[in-house]
Design a binder for these strands. Sequence first.
DNA 1: TATTTGACGATTT
DNA 2: CAAATCGCCAAAT
Length: 110
Amino acid sequence: MKSKSKRTGGFFPRVYEAVRLIPHGKVTTYGAIAAYLGSPKSSRAVGYALHVNPYPVEVPCHRVVNRHGSLSGSFAFGGGDAQRALLESEGVSVSDDYTVNLSEYGYFFG
DNA sequence: TATTTGACGATTT
DNA sequence: CAAATCGCCAAAT
């Protein structure tokens, strides 16, 4: 044990883990994940983590949207259209503008 | 070690 | 309301 006060755990794995905690039919925001990890300002890093998302099957990035509940436009699974289909498939109503109602489907880890 | 990039957030113009 | 700008963070090169 190297009792080093430095968390070498890694930021990305935590993001993937948090995203996996999102239940079906719900969505969360980058900022919520960042805050859950302990850094509410690392929302960019969270988005970057999902951008490089090496395991799209284990990390349902389609359940992660920006603070307005709107889709990011990009998607590691196929495209924005695919995301809307996936969310609706889980019971999430997506607007024509690729936006979801966070007041209805927003999940904030608690 | 420094530079670049990026699926964000909030504020200002 | 839309576009532009600043600020913040982490990883890759």
